[in-house]
Write a protein that binds this DNA or RNA. Structure first.
Length: 814
RNA sequence: GCGCGGAUGGCGGAACCGGUAGACGCGCGGGACUUAGGAUCCCGUGGGGCAACCCAUCCGAGUUCGAGUCUCGGUCCGCGCACCA
């Protein structure tokens, strides 16, 4: 610390040197690295504990304090587990492939490989190593390194072989600015989540991973996971299981004989007044009379892309007729973009009386609106609630929830429909028409179709390309590299062409936790024994912005591998907690907003320990908060107290007294419980109280050595350097971070002997009294009523009731 | 619109199962040491009142001996989803 050269006013003359964070921290970081303290024995751990932080994607902007909060919190948890005797594996790596990295490279006009190399070394050596985390750098990964993406490609091929990959045409979401297709998860309100451009629809043949196959399994397994409830809820909503019915309508006047619709409200079937087919339905032509196909296609070609706000004025009467399965009524068949092709069956029965969208559409186009559930004004506004059936023939008067089942039965008996389940989740589109990613390892052969690149030919190296700009034509810039594209088919040896798309960045990060323990294996993606020993991850901490993408994709990949028998566990992360986000002036930190706070200057000025503690003390770890540095001096004072208090403690352990012992056990138990729940802010508050008392006692020559030792051990996860230095200075040989060193604590010994009990009269606090802990209710009542203050207040009045709660309160009611 | 959270001193935040609201820290006030200090240390600090006491956890009801905590109804803020039938 550069600005605290003067000794404390009450220091024993000339004994203590000032706390110099810079010197202490550099010394211990060097020592730990030289000794290899944090290299994990991956092959023969007694109690393996995989402690994982979401890895960053390197950028030239460097890490800001918004990154340091999660990493500090992860490291505290890991160091705490280590002190409890676990063999903690805490790796770190870099998500260096992807559009974000490529876009930045484009912006500054350098090749992404060059930019990333520089950014990674700055992240790692300039920043991550400075915070004193116990990252095991022997096992780092970099998703853009051939030694990593070779296995990303290998993984793709395993899914390909297992039938979990499809190459198919589809209406895809296209970003006109990023010039690539996007996954469903990357589009928000019809806009690209990265650049905010309005997304367009394109028809392209693309690679999809069949994540929907696991929708139900992933939904069910959520109950077995120890994850933040908010995260689980988001996944549940994203998977979006809906129970309903599939109902078949016969068609007249077109090639197609019938159409199936999906509805969650079969009870409203009698209110269906028309049928709507999705405008992007690939076989839409089959729903119109043959002579109207030209008209239909002309209409379809004029349709806009997906809209943020649905436009119910857009729609076309197809001219064919649907027959109501129960009433035989003849309903018009329409097509409109407000009906989605890739949800349900791509067609709906429109019930304008009980669905707002159908109501809006019916109103726009003058279609009939019928009320079939009483309870609201169906004709005027659409009533979506429950009620009693009306205008529903024999079912009139039946409650809607019963009718739901009854109508499905009726349909099942006549084979016109059945109960069914639909999910909101879509398959994962992984093709990207960009440069900076792993080439999809497929060869297109005119005779053999889509052929996997043989494993022994992996990696399919990303060719070095001077002009890597996206083309916007629906193909990747890789297509221009003729001598790379043209190959011979591995099956027939004839001429063939490579797939030129690269895969989505989220595929890179969907399995990186599998690679960390096995980075020293060149011949396999992940060693079986290592994997089964270390997976699933014991504690995973990251941002909730990845709740439905990274976390869902990773679960899918793991489940796929599990299905192939390649891993033992179907889930990647046994425990997940979302950390809070640090904002600045109410907004997320970003260079464009100009509100980025660089941690480097704080680390340089105050030291990493102070900075870590300060971030953790700002507020609850899982809540985050607004970054202001006004309070950092409080942490600085706290560490100086620790510096003095522990070094001046001289009283031997043999002279320990019972009250101090109780205080110590309370500290250990309290900090232990707080860290377990990630309540770092309150753990630090307890440490501050303890340090202040020790400092005072030490200044008076009564500081206990055992107190100093306990304080250092409990503080060690938070402030690894200063505690290590003080551990040595207070006469210890090994490291304060040695596995299993956490002080034992006995809840009985932590219990208070005397407690202060509040005495209320009619619920108002009027006095307190100190009594032995555990004093019984009757005893409490008697003591309270004898208190002079209470006697005075009661006067002549006779208490109607006296409530007593042991160790807490007495309430006298008059 | 639907679904989740949240609202506590000047500020960040504590408060286990309903039991002394405001731990810890910042800031502020006073003092000590100082040539000086924005360094460090000590004491005080929700508001009002001389005091007894009164008022205080977004607002309004309710349950209870007792409510920041539970119930109902609002207001505001944040997050997720939003044509998903």
């Amino acid at each position: 610390m550069t600005d605290t050269t003067s000794a404390p006013a009450d220091a024993s003359p000339g004994l203590l040197d000032a706390y110099d964070a810079g010197r202490v921290e550099a010394k211990w970081r060097r020592t730990w690295e030289e000794r290899g303290d944090y290299r994990t024995n991956l092959d023969s751990p007694q109690r393996p504990f995989y402690n994982l932080a979401m890895f960053p994607y390197p950028s030239a902007e460097g890490l800001h304090v918004g990154h340091m909060l999660p990493y500090s919190g992860v490291d505290i948890y890991g160091r705490w587990r280590r002190l409890h005797g676990d063999d903690v594996f805490e790796p770190m790596g870099f998500d260096a492939f992807g559009i974000h990295s490529e876009n930045y490279a484009l912006k500054i006009g350098e090749h992404p490989a060059v930019v990333m190399k520089r950014a990674v070394s700055n992240f790692r050596d300039g920043q991550l190593k400075m915070i004193g985390a116990m990252f095991d750098w022997d096992h780092q990964v970099n998703t853009a390194d051939p030694s990593y993406y070779r296995w990303t490609q290998w993984l793709f091929l395993r899914f390909f072989e297992a039938g979990l990959v499809e190459w198919r045409d589809g209406a895809v979401l296209w970003c006109p600015s990023c010039l690539t297709v996007l996954a469903n998860e990357q589009v928000e309100h019809g806009r690209c989540e990265r650049c905010d451009s309005v997304v367009e629809t394109r028809w392209l043949r693309q690679w999809w991973l069949k994540i929907t196959r696991y929708a139900q399994e992933m939904l069910d397994a959520l109950d077995t996971l120890d994850w933040s409830e908010s995260t689980k809820l988001m996944q549940r909503n994203w998977i979006g299981r809906r129970e309903g019915a599939r109902i078949s309508f016969d068609l007249e006047g077109c090639e197609r004989p019938d159409v199936a619709v999906f509805t969650t409200r079969p009870d409203t079937l009698f209110g269906a007044t028309f049928v709507v087919i999705a405008a992007d339905h690939p076989q839409l032509e089959e729903f119109v009379p043959a002579e109207r196909r030209g008209e239909l296609n002309a209409w379809r070609n004029r349709l806009p892309g997906p809209q943020a706000e649905p436009d119910f004025s857009v729609g076309i009467d197809l001219g064919s007729t649907a027959i109501h399965p129960l009433t035989g009524a003849r309903l018009p068949v329409w097509s409109a973009p407000y009906v989605l092709y890739d949800y349900g069956t791509g067609a709906i029965m429109a019930v304008p009386g009980h669905d707002e969208r159908d109501h809006a559409f019916a109103t726009e186009h003058g279609l009939p609106i019928v009320e079939v559930i009483s309870g609201g004004d169906a004709v005027a506004t659409a009533y979506a609630g429950e009620g009693t059936l009306v205008n529903s023939g024999e079912l009139d008067g039946m409650p809607s929830d019963q009718a739901r089942k009854r109508i499905v039965e009726m349909l099942e008996n006549t084979h016109r429909g059945q109960a069914t389940i639909t999910y909101r989740l879509r398959d994962w589109l992984i093709s990207r028409q960009r440069y900076w990613g792993p080439p999809i390892p497929i060869i297109h052969c005119p005779t053999d179709g889509q052929v996997a690149v043989p494993d022994e030919d992996l990696p399919v190296l990303l060719p070095e390309l001077a002009d890597f700009r996206p083309t916007g034509t629906g193909v990747s810039p890789l297509a221009t590299v003729e001598d790379w594209v043209n190959v011979t088919c591995p099956k027939c040896g004839g001429p063939a062409r490579r797939e030129t798309d690269v895969s989505d960045t989220f595929l890179d990060s969907s399995w990186y936790f599998l690679r960390y323990p096995s980075t020293d294996f060149d011949a396999v993606a992940f060693d079986r024994e290592r994997t089964n020993r270390w997976l699933p991850v014991d504690m995973y901490i990251g941002g909730n912005e990845h709740a439905v993408r990274h976390l869902l994709y990773s679960r899918f990949v793991m489940r796929g591998l599990h299905g192939m028998g390649l891993v033992n566990d179907p889930e990647p992360f046994a425990k997940f907690r979302a950390h809070g986000m640090i904002v600045k002036d109410g907004a997320k930190m970003s260079k464009s907003r100009g509100n980025v706070v660089n941690p480097d200057e704080y680390i340089e000025k105050y030291g990493a320990d102070t900075f870590r503690l300060y971030l953790m003390f700002l507020g609850p770890y899982t809540a985050g908060g607004d970054f202001r540095d006004e309070g950092i001096v409080g942490i600085s004072r706290f560490l100086q107290r620790v510096w003095r208090g522990t070094q001046r403690a001289t009283v031997a352990d043999a002279d320990d007294d019972e009250e101090r012992e109780r205080r110590r056990h309370r500290l250990v138990g309290g900090v232990d419980a707080d860290i377990a729940e990630l309540h770092y802010n309150t753990a630090i508050a307890q440490l501050m109280e303890f340090a202040r008392e020790l400092d005072h006692e030490s200044a008076a020559g009564r500081g206990r050595l055992v107190d100093a030792e306990t304080l250092l051990l409990c503080l060690a996860p938070f402030a690894p350097h200063i505690t290590e230095e003080l551990w040595q200075r207070t006469g210890h040989d090994g490291s304060v971070h040695a596995p299993g060193g956490w002080p034992e604590h006995d809840p009985d010994l932590a219990a208070r002997v005397e407690v202060e009990v509040a005495v209320q009269v009619n619920g108002k606090l009027r006095a307190t009294m100190t009594v032995p802990a555990g004093t019984g209710e009757d005893d409490l009542r008697q003591r309270a009523l004898e208190l002079p203050r209470i006697v005075e207040l009661l006067g002549e009045a006779e208490p109607r009731k006296v409530v007593a709660v042991v160790d807490r309160i007495v309430n006298v009611v008059v």
